[in-house]
């Protein structure tokens, strides 16, 4: 097993072991924090597909994160108040079943990513960064001023949604759901990376011309990658909303996009388990520094700066060496 493989194994087991320890030590909040890590990592895995593999720096993934959150919020709030979402042309009821909510979140995020991607991928480089940011901001202002689902106040869901056979209100059980999804999606991401599609995408990132000469349109490759990426981040958004039992336009904020980008870079761009390491590091920093002083964000900034200046390749990249950066 390569060094990166060992690190990945350690990260995967560590993320599982920590909440199990917390359960034993009766520290339920540590389980909640671990769940947050798993969900943010999931969002990061989604972004990593477009950013690491496709070279598409999106500063608008909050759009997908938020749409996933609102898919959960809208479905659950209608189920909570026993009012249908649509009565015409056919009656569509809300639901509290997690699997249904996930599917809706994934589909909604996928459609949104298809629309945003189809338009944004005409640009590249900084223009791509900024046009994705613009779409994110559009959705943010829309959500803030759209009164039907709470506007800036957001939507509270009083009881966490249900998963067959589990009690999702128990912190550890909800963590296990998030963890299982994260592992499944990591497996999927590994498959995509090694598939002919992934290899072509990687080649399109490095030498677009060469891909075109063998008859593959880089635009289509990138669009597919962007849509898959958006769907994964949308799923993470639905879970995050369930973790907090609350959705609000803050999920659409550009800072949310920024934070997802940050945890991917922190962990190591294009590294399979990079987002896991990045999310764990970011959440731990926020938790540990929060009590130091009112001005704790200065220290957060200094740590982030140190990582980007002195630990190139992020946490996984630094630990694993550079050998497998593109593998």
């Amino acid at each position: 097993m390569s060094r990166e493989g060992l690190i990945n194994l350690a990260l995967g087991l560590g993320l599982l072991a920590f909440p199990l320890w917390a359960e034993w030590a009766e520290e339920p909040f540590m389980i909640t924090l671990s769940t947050r890590v798993a969900i943010l990592a999931l969002a990061g895995v989604g972004l990593n597909l477009s950013l690491g593999l496709g070279g598409l720096v999106s500063l608008g993934h909050a759009a997908f994160f938020g749409i996933g959150g609102y898919a959960m919020g809208i479905l659950a709030s209608h189920a909570q108040s026993y009012t249908p979402i649509f009565e015409w042309p056919l009656v569509i009821e809300g639901t509290k079943a997690m699997p249904v909510i996930w599917l809706v979140a994934i589909a909604a995020a996928g459609l949104l990513a298809l629309a945003i991607g189809a338009l944004s991928l005409r640009t590249s480089g900084v223009y791509f960064i900024m046009i994705t940011l613009a779409f994110g901001q559009m959705l943010f202002y829309f959500a803030v001023s759209w009164p039907a689902y709470g506007g800036e106040d957001g939507l509270s869901i009083y009881v966490r949604n249900a998963f067959p056979g589990l009690n999702t209100l128990v912190p550890l059980q909800f963590f296990l759901i998030a963890y299982a999804l994260l592992m499944a999606v990591l497996g999927l991401a590994a498959l995509i990376t090694r598939s002919p599609f992934g290899l072509a995408l990687d080649a399109a990132r490095q030498v677009p011309v060469r891909v075109e000469t063998v008859g593959i349109a880089p635009y289509r490759l990138r669009l597919i990658a962007f849509v898959i990426s958006g769907m994964i981040t949308g799923l993470a958004g639905a879970l995050y909303a369930d973790l907090n039992r609350f959705v609000s336009p803050a999920m659409f904020n550009w800072q949310t996009s920024g934070e997802i980008v940050i945890l991917v870079i922190l962990g190591g761009t294009a590294r399979l388990f990079g987002p896991v390491a990045g999310a764990a590091f970011f959440v731990a920093l926020e938790h540990l520094l929060g009590g130091v002083s009112d001005y704790w964000r200065i220290y957060l900034g200094l740590v982030l700066l140190a990582v980007v200046l002195f630990a190139r390749g992020g946490i996984v990249g630094t630990l694993a060496g550079r050998e497998a950066a593109d593998g």
């Binding site: 980008v261 940050i262 982030l304």
Partner: peptide, 8 residues
């Protein structure tokens, strides 16, 4: 690359 610039 732009990513590192964004983070820093």
């Amino acid at each position: 690359d732009h990513l590192d610039q964004v983070l820093a």
